[in-house]
Structure formats: C-alpha cells, structure tokens
C-alpha cells in the first residue's frame, strides 16, 4: 500500500501537501521568534539560546532542536523529491506546447516550480549564513545571533537575497497552502472562501513579518 501511495500522482501530491503544511507551521513559529529581535539583543540572543535547551529536562540539550531539524529536513527532501518527480512527469505529459500561447493562471500558481527552486537555494544559503556561519560576511559568532543577523543585513546582497526569497516564499505559501488543503481533501464549497482568505492572509503576514527584519536593520531600527 505504501508503494502504491508513493507511486500515485495523488499520493505524491498528498506528501507535498502535508510536508508543505509542516513547513508553513514552522515558518509561522520562525517568524514569531524573529520578532524578538525588536526587543533588543539580549532578548533575541536569549531566545536563540532557549532553542538549544527546549524540551529540557525531558529532552537532552539540543535534542529538541535536532528533532525539529530532522523533521524539517525530511519535509524539505520529501517535498522537493515529489516536486521534482511530479514536474518531470507533468512535462512529459504535455511535451508539445500550443502555438498560440496564453498565460492565464495566477502568478503564484505559475511560479510554484521556480519559486520552489529559489526557496531551496535560499534555505541552503540561509543555513550556511546564520547557522553554520560558513558564508557569513563578517566573523560569525556562535551564540550571538543578534549580531550575526545585523551583519548579514548590513550587506546589500544579504538584503537582496533575503527579500527576494521572502517574496517567493509568500507566493509559494499563497498557492501552496490552499493547494495543500485541496490535496488532502479538506476543501469544500463552504470552506472555499475561508481557505483562500487564510492562504492570502498567511502569505501576507509571513512575507511582511520576515521582511520586517532586514528592513529594520536597513533603517537602523535594529542595529
């Protein structure tokens, strides 16, 4: 059964929907955590520290964080693998384009594939920048996330990458959330408006929430 689930286009889409929703849930939490930055370096750094000890004493130090990381990584991989396989299939199913071309789908719908690729690349950069510090512009300091964030957003490219990625994320979430609801079959005629509004609201709040950080650094609200 697991096999036929995975082999089915509908099954793969459900995997994408569920993993997508997990990631959206994470984004909401992440954005709320980010907001701590507006309360100053101490608050923000303390929050960064707490992430490492979350779940203690039930969980060992860092375990909570690692569990979250494993879940997220699995989600990203499953989401990406399904997306890749389905996209290949879709392209094969429609090999010949119409001579008379017409763009009709909403921008968010049309950009799901490229938006997804951009987000994937962004996640890699984001981890190398602020988790491992590998590509951090200016002396990464473990345990000092506030300073690290300010460093990143003090470079022009850091801002550009981040803001572009967050706009892509917003659009991805906008179609993705609604789409996931349809895929796992919770949509209905009566819920349609609520779902669309929620998708739009989520996308907007997440985009604004995330972008507020670099904007705050740029404008000097956070420094």
């Amino acid at each position: 059964m697991a096999r036929s689930f995975w082999d089915s286009t509908v099954g793969k889409k459900i995997v994408m929907g569920v993993t997508g929703l997990i990631m959206i849930g994470y984004l909401v939490v992440h954005m709320m955590g980010n907001a701590k930055i507006f309360f100053g370096a101490d608050d923000f750094n303390e929050y960064g520290h707490w992430l490492r000890v979350v779940g203690e004493p039930f969980l060992h130090r860092m375990w909570g964080l690692w569990i979250a990381r494993v879940v997220l990584l699995t989600s990203v991989i499953l989401h990406a693998v399904c997306a890749y396989q389905l996209s290949r299939r879709d392209i094969k199913a429609r090999p010949q384009k119409y001579v008379h071309k017409k763009a009709r789908m909403s921008y968010a719908t049309r950009t799901m594939r490229w938006g997804g690729v951009i987000l994937g690349l962004f996640i890699v950069w984001h981890i190398l920048d602020l988790t491992t510090g590998t590509v951090h512009p200016d002396g990464f300091e473990d345990g000092k996330p506030y300073q690290n964030v300010v460093d990143t957003f003090s470079t022009w490219y850091g801002n550009v990458i981040y803001i572009v990625a967050m706009l892509a994320m917003g659009m991805h979430v906008r179609h993705g959330f609604w789409s996931a609801a349809q895929t796992i079959g919770v949509g209905s005629r009566t819920r349609e408006r609520v779902l669309k509004a929620t998708a739009n609201g989520l996308a907007l709040i997440l985009t604004v929430g995330f972008i507020s950080v670099p904007v705050a650094v740029m404008t000097g609200v956070v420094s």
Binding site: S4, D7, S8, T9, V10, K12, K13, L86, R89, D90, I91, K92, A93, R94, R104, M105, T109, R110, M112, H175, W178, S179, Q182, T183
Partner: peptide, 18 residues
C-alpha cells in the same frame, strides 16, 4: 481509476484551475 489515470501518462494536478 486514479491508478489507471496515472498509467495512461496523464500529468499530475497542480491545482492551476485551468
């Protein structure tokens, strides 16, 4: 029916709504 639909080489749904 879904299995046959896949078997026939139709693509997957991205809920584009077209």
């Amino acid at each position: 029916m879904v299995a046959q639909m896949d078997e026939e080489g139709f693509g997957g749904c991205t809920l584009a709504g077209e």
